[in-house]
């Protein structure tokens, strides 16, 4: 696709404007996160000090972590650190939040990417199939499948999957990222399946993949349902358009018409949905990670809230919100690339 120079310029300006927009929103997110997390009654110093600590000890811990300072001062300290790329030190793990994130993020990334792959890999063909075989049994079955998908509680689906595939059939492992006696593959990305693939370690790859399968499916099901629906409806819209009719009249094979012409145009709404669903995917990841004991960011943040680990909560929300706005920006840019008629 060759893009004209002027178009690129406008696009660039648009991206810059959007970036300038992002700053206040992200700042707002940190304020909200700070206010709410500090509104939770409780004192992390009491938790670190242990169940039998004396008052002096608790007071001392409060001082070392700066928890005795007034809230505005604490928030200012956070911003100050942030401006230097420092997210602060986790109260719970006693080490920089960034290091914690580095340890936990790859697991979540692996899980979400795998489910995205499942979504697209299954959702697009299913959607196309449903559109092509419109109003047949296949279409109706797909519809039932997707209505159930958007209506299933993620945590319950996870439990049912465990019950069937782990407890009764014993086909797949029920927790963790690797078998306990298996050494983790050499860290490159931190995503075990990818690392194992890069290292050519087939045994580790098989093992990591088998651990990944259930949680990834559990997380993907809702979005799989949504994407199937979207692809179906946009395909139906496109299939009725003039140029498709022309293409057919020109004697192109049906498969070619569907895959080449119609499918390309149904990509736009699909991309939008992927962007919009990102936030919910994170929410789903929290529940999925809890059910499958997947050591990722979701579990990390739940533990952080339970421990009132303020720096960790702030770091997590900032990261996720940043990812959210970036993904949406990318979606909009992609939009423009797929369909150059859109102008900003």
């Amino acid at each position: 696709m060759k893009l004209p120079g002027r178009f690129l310029m406008t696009l660039l300006l648009y991206v810059l404007r959007r970036l300038a927009y992002m700053a206040p929103v992200l700042l707002g997110v940190t304020v909200l996160a700070f206010l709410i997390s500090h509104a939770i009654p409780g004192d992390p110093a009491q938790l670190i000090a242990g169940p039998k600590a004396s008052r002096e000890t608790v007071e001392n811990i409060r001082r070392t972590h700066g928890l005795d300072q007034p809230l505005p001062a604490q928030y200012w300290r956070f911003l100050h650190g942030l401006s230097q790329g420092d997210l602060g030190v986790s109260i719970r793990s006693h080490r920089p939040v960034l290091e914690d994130i580095r340890d936990y993020l790859p697991a979540t990334l692996e899980l979400t990417l795998a489910s995205l792959l499942l979504c697209l890999g299954l959702g697009i063909p299913l959607g196309i199939l449903a559109a092509v075989k419109r109003n047949t049994v296949v279409d109706h079955l797909t519809r039932v499948f997707s209505v159930i998908g958007v209506s299933t509680p993620v945590f319950w689906l996870g439990l049912m999957l465990l019950l069937v595939f782990y407890r009764h059939l014993g086909w797949l492992p029920g927790s963790g990222r690797l078998d306990v006696t298996m050494a983790a593959p050499l860290r490159i990305t931190g995503m075990y399946t990818v690392d194992a693939l890069l290292a050519g370690d087939w045994q580790a790859l098989r093992n990591a993949a088998s651990h990944l399968l259930l949680p990834a499916f559990c997380l993907s099901y809702v979005y799989l349902a949504i994407i199937t629906r979207i692809v179906r409806s946009s395909m139906i819209a496109v299939l009725g358009q003039d140029y498709i009719v022309t293409a057919r009249a020109n004697g192109l094979s049906e498969a070619r018409v569907v895959l080449k012409h119609a499918f390309k145009n149904s990509l736009i709404p699909t991309v939008t949905i992927v962007g919009l669903s990102f936030g919910e995917l994170m929410g789903g990841a929290i529940l999925t990670e809890t059910i499958f004991s997947w050591p990722g960011m979701g579990k990390y943040v739940v533990d952080s809230v339970n421990y009132l680990d303020f720096p960790a909560i702030m770091g997590f929300t900032l990261m996720v919100s940043l990812a959210y706005v970036c993904v949406n920006l990318a979606v909009d840019v992609l939009y423009a690339a797929i369909n150059p008629t859109i102008r900003y």
Binding site: I40, P41, G42, D43, P44, Q46, L47, N306, Y307
Partner: peptide, 11 residues
């Protein structure tokens, strides 16, 4: 109650 809240109230 969440653990931190509980301990705060006990204290």
């Amino acid at each position: 109650l969440a653990n931190p809240t509980l301990r705060d109230q006990v204290d």
